[in-house]
Structure formats: structure tokens, C-alpha cells
Write a protein that binds this DNA or RNA. Structure first.
Length: 562
DNA sequence: GTTGAGCGTT
């Protein structure tokens, strides 16, 4: 039997670990001796560089072709972003000390953690142990064996298997609680082979995200060749990645969850190059909160007062200061106040301002601080949506509440759908529309554009031509004006833009919401929410034509994945 | 005695 010499850190006394018959070393074998470790590395004699050991499916592979581990002394790799505590070393010296990442991993958000009451409270919350759910347990696993397994990570306060009350048969999942936060962190950062099955350990849903700072980020502008491993590998350098989710079918975005919410937050607003592709990281709002926000929006649409919605998001913004800051849902913050949209010339028009999130225009231009005229409801509402809202809020903006043919008045022109998590988020930036007016490389593909052209004001150009160009590339402009003949005489931003920038050039967007009977030769492609057309209702009754899906499934809805 | 995504009689 081959033995592999492993030490916790380079230079430490090694322990010999038995390799398997095929020459591999089981990760579980490694972790039995070095709890929390997730891999091995060694110092290459020739290059003097540290080399990682290949790891796959819970096995570590010897570096040489002859399946030999050689005479190297390997040392452990611990997940980044998680301090590992040497068994004999001093433990954490303060309950308020976060699990700080290695020095090289330290990011801005770690600065000044101390001396901040708010942050301290947050850390305190974060450091609290919670029950963890263990999913995928073998039927045979007992509470004793479950406990036994997890004790290698630290003190186990509780180990529980959920069973059918009648039969006593395990339901295949259980809960475990640790006595120390670091043990919990280690457990959460690893995969677990328990009684022969790979199990997943998570913070249970029932714990909710509550007041916790989100750990998940939205990664926009992904290309199809960026797989979950790529994302995981890339983002792991910033901190432990606990989950990567790529919606299928491909939708040009994905989600990455970090163990440390600070890491997640610190990345928000940044562009990163992965496999040569510039992706954009932004906030991924918790689903529950999004739904709540959504409801609030509808309500607020009618009231003409959109402030206060998304309040959750405001609160969450404390971490973005100084960085990109999404200011989600915060109209006031988002308002650039430039008031310089040259295209809003007619008295009706909130379009372009409300829709595009150019708060300044609305605020200043339309209502002088009233934010909205009740009928036109909502500058605030739309502009804030960095998500799927169409910038085009026509019925409300134009008709207000009294349009006889507008069945949807009062329910928010764009989001009449029900049962949808609904779009909160995808912002232009994330979708590839940047201040340079260029868009991502998906142009022209059948991309099922997840867009909501909600806008991230921080990234928006104020030059409408650039906005137009960008939108145009995403096929958002094309024919959204099909109702224009009825509703407006003076033209609006979109019409201006359309006139000045031509039509959409991506023809296969599966847009929906086109209005039957429209004069628009391209009706049916005008809406905005793409995908297959299920859930898209061509409107015959004067509804906005945007997204009246009752069960639409293809709009870009981050919340569906959270 | 089967199952394999899920979320706990506190």
C-alpha cells in the first residue's frame, strides 16, 4: 500500500496517509486527519512553485503518471476565506473575530470591521451556529453514525435524522448542530461522504436569509462555455464558494454563492474576466424579499408613491458603499438628477426617465419632487427596477388610471404576471449594456434574452443615443412602440430612440407581448420578455403588452434561482 | 421491502 506524506502546513511534521489501490487518496482519508482540508499541494522541486494536486469526485490524484505520490511531502489546502484552526493552535480569541480569510484574500470589506457597531452585530449574527440540514443521507444512516461522522469536524451538539413517524424509516435527511462556528464553517465548505453517499450540508431554508447579508451574487454576461467549475474556480480566489448555479437552458447569467457574505458583497458591481469573458457581478436579491418588493410595487403603482418599496434592499446596501453600489430600490439614491434627457419633450412622457431609471429626469422634470403624478404612477417604481422592468411604462405613464381601454391600469404596466418571482435585477450592466453602449457577445444569438431592461443607474449613460444603441443591440427597442399611435402624439424617448437608431437587429429574441392587431408590422416581437413565448400574452385589450404573463417562466428572473 | 428531492411535531 502506498502512503502519502501529508502535513497540515508546509514544514510541519507529516502524517502518512494510506492511498487507495488505484493510487488515489480519498479526500475523506485526508479529512479524517485534517478536518476541513479540501485538497493537497506540494512544493515542486524543479520550479520551486507550489503545485496543486488534482482532485475529483472526492479523490486526490498523485501527480506522477505512474500513480506514484513520490517522496513529496504534501500539505493541506483549506478553503479560502475560511481560517482553519490548527488542532493544537490557539483558537479564535474573540467571539467577534470573523472567520477571516487568509491575508492574501483579504478584501476591502474586511477593513474596519472592528469599531463598527453595525458590522459587529452583523458578524455576531453570522457567527452564530445554526442547525444545518444534511441532505441525501443514506437510508441506513442513524443519528449515531451521523454524529460520529461530523464529530471529526468539531463538537456536535445535535444530530438528528428525520424519519417517517409510522415506519421509523429515515427520510434521508437530518440536522446537525455544531458547538463552534468554525466547525460549522468547515462542514459547510466541504462535501461529505456519509455511509457511502455524498451528502449535502446547508443552512436550512427554514432559517431563511432573514436579516442575513446575502451570500449570493448574480453573475451576468456569462457565455455558455463558462461552466460551474469555471465559476467556482475563479471565484474561489475571493473566498469559499458554496454553490454555483447556472440556469438551464442557458440564459447568460449565473449565481455564485459564497460562504462569506462580505466576500459576495465586496464583489458586487465588479467586472471580472473569466475565460476571456467579462462578466459582471451584482447583487442577487433573496427571493422572498423580491416577492415582497414586487407586491409592494404593485401597490405603489396605484398610489403613485413608490418610496419605501424595496426597503429591504436599501438596508442591504450598507456594504456597497464606495464600490459600485446598486442602491437597489432606492430611487433617491439612484436619481442622478441630471434632468438632462433631451428627448423627453412631451408632457406625457415619463418614458425614458422612469423606464430607464433616470431618476433625475423624472424627479426634476416631471413632477418637481413629487416624483409622480398619480396617474402616471411611478417614476420611482420603474426606475428602480434594475430588473426586468421594461423601460416602457406606457400605459401607466400615458394613461394613468383612467384609460378606458386599459385593463391593467393600476396594476403596473409591466408586471401583471402572477405567480412569478418576477424580475428583480438584471441590470443593464449585468446584461452587457455598459456605458460605452456596447453589449455582450451574445448579440444575434437566440439568446432568450433575460433582460429586463431595468437599469443600474450607476452604469447608465446619460446619453440616450447610447442607451438606444445598447438597447437596440439587445433587441429591446425594435417595436415596442406599437401602441404609440394611440397613446402619444408627441413621441417619447423610445420613439425618438427608435427613429434615431433604427430597429432591432437581433431577430430571434422571442419577445413577447406584441399586441395583436397592432399596426406594427412586427407586432409580437415587441415585448420584452423573451424566452419561448409561453407566458406571453399578446394583448388585445390595450394592456401594456409587456409582461402580462400569468405564469411566465422565461423572463429574467433572478429570483427564480435564489 | 421500494425512494433520492427536499427543509425540521420542538
Amino acid at each position: 500500500m502506498d502512503f502519502v506524506q501529508v502535513s497540515e502546513e508546509e514544514g510541519d511534521e507529516p502524517i502518512e496517509l494510506p492511498a487507495e489501490e488505484d493510487g488515489t487518496l480519498l479526500l475523506s482519508t485526508l479529512q479524517a486527519q485534517f478536518p476541513g482540508s479540501c485538497g493537497l499541494k506540494y512544493r515542486n522541486m524543479d520550479t520551486k512553485a507550489v503545485r496543486g494536486v488534482r482532485s475529483n469526485e472526492g479523490r486526490l490524484f498523485p501527480p506522477s503518471v505512474d500513480s506514484s505520490w513520490g517522496e513529496y511531502i504534501y500539505f493541506c489546502v483549506f478553503p479560502k476565506g475560511i481560517a482553519h484552526f490548527r488542532s493544537s493552535a490557539a483558537q479564535i480569541d474573540s467571539p467577534y473575530r470573523p472567520i477571516l480569510p487568509p491575508v492574501e484574500n483579504k478584501r476591502k470589506s474586511d477593513d474596519n470591521l472592528e469599531n463598527s457597531t453595525a458590522k459587529t452585530k452583523r458578524i455576531e449574527t453570522r457567527l452564530r451556529c445554526t442547525d444545518l440540514i444534511v441532505l441525501g443521507l443514506p437510508w441506513k444512516t442513524t443519528e449515531d453514525s451521523l454524529r460520529e461522522y461530523f464529530e471529526s469536524y468539531g463538537e456536535v451538539l445535535m444530530a438528528q435524522i428525520k424519519k417517517d413517524v409510522k415506519s421509523g424509516q429515515s427520510k434521508g435527511f437530518g440536522f446537525v448542530r455544531f458547538g463552534s462556528y468554525e466547525a460549522q464553517m468547515r462542514v459547510l465548505s466541504n462535501r461529505h461522504l456519509i455511509d457511502g453517499r455524498w451528502c449535502e450540508v446547508k443552512v436550512p431554508n427554514s432559517k431563511g436569509m432573514g436579516h442575513q447579508v446575502p451570500c449570493k451574487v448574480f453573475v451576468g454576461r456569462c457565455t455558455e462555455d463558462i461552466n460551474s467549475d469555471d465559476l467556482r474556480e475563479y471565484f474561489s480566489k475571493f473566498g469559499e464558494v458554496t454553490d454555483v448555479f447556472i440556469p438551464r437552458p442557458f440564459r447568460a447569467f449565473s449565481f455564485v454563492t459564497f460562504l462569506d457574505p462580505d466576500v459576495a458583497q465586496s464583489l458586487c458591481g465588479e467586472d471580472h474576466i473569466i475565460k476571456g469573458v467579462s462578466v459582471h457581478v451584482s447583487n442577487a436579491a433573496p427571493k422572498a424579499e423580491q416577492n415582497r418588493s414586487h407586491q409592494g410595487q404593485n401597490f405603489n403603482y396605484n398610489s403613485g408613491n413608490n418610496f419605501g418599496m424595496h426597503s429591504y434592499h436599501h438596508q442591504g446596501n450598507h456594504m456597497n458603499s464606495g464600490r459600485s453600489g446598486h442602491h437597489r430600490g432606492n430611487n433617491q439614491h439612484n436619481a442622478h438628477g441630471s434632468g438632462d434627457n433631451p428627448t423627453i419633450g412631451n408632457s406625457h412622457s415619463n418614458i425614458g426617465s422612469g423606464g430607464y431609471g433616470m431618476g433625475g429626469n423624472n424627479f426634476g422634470g416631471n413632477s418637481g419632487g413629487g416624483y409622480n403624478n398619480s396617474g402616471s404612477h411611478n417614476s420611482g417604481g420603474n426606475m428602480n427596477r434594475q430588473d426586468g422592468g421594461m423601460p416602457y411604462n406606457r400605459q401607466n405613464n400615458y394613461h394613468g388610471m383612467n384609460q378606458p381601454h386599459n385593463g391593467n391600469v393600476g396594476s403596473g404596466g409591466w408586471m401583471n404576471q402572477q405567480n412569478r418571482g418576477h424580475l428583480d435585477m438584471p441590470n443593464l450592466q449585468a446584461l452587457g449594456i455598459n456605458p460605452q453602449g456596447s453589449s455582450s457577445s451574445n448579440q444575434g444569438q437566440n439568446m432568450n434574452n433575460p433582460l429586463g431592461v431595468g437599469l443600474n443607474l450607476n452604469s447608465l449613460p446619460m446619453n440616450p443615443a447610447l442607451v438606444a444603441a445598447a438597447l437596440n443591440q439587445w433587441s429591446l427597442l425594435g417595436n415596442q412602440l406599437q401602441n404609440q399611435n394611440q397613446d402619444q402624439q408627441g413621441g417619447n424617448f423610445l420613439s425618438w430612440v427608435a427613429q434615431n437608431s433604427g430597429h432591432s437587429n437581433a431577430s430571434n429574441m422571442n419577445n413577447c407581448g406584441g399586441r395583436k392587431g397592432s399596426n406594427n408590422p412586427n407586432s409580437g416581437s415587441a415585448g420584452m420578455i423573451k424566452g419561448d413565448n409561453s407566458g406571453c400574452n399578446d394583448q388585445q385589450n390595450g394592456n401594456s403588452g409587456w409582461s402580462n404573463q400569468s405564469s411566465g417562466s422565461n423572463s429574467v428572473d433572478k429570483s427564480n434561482f435564489l
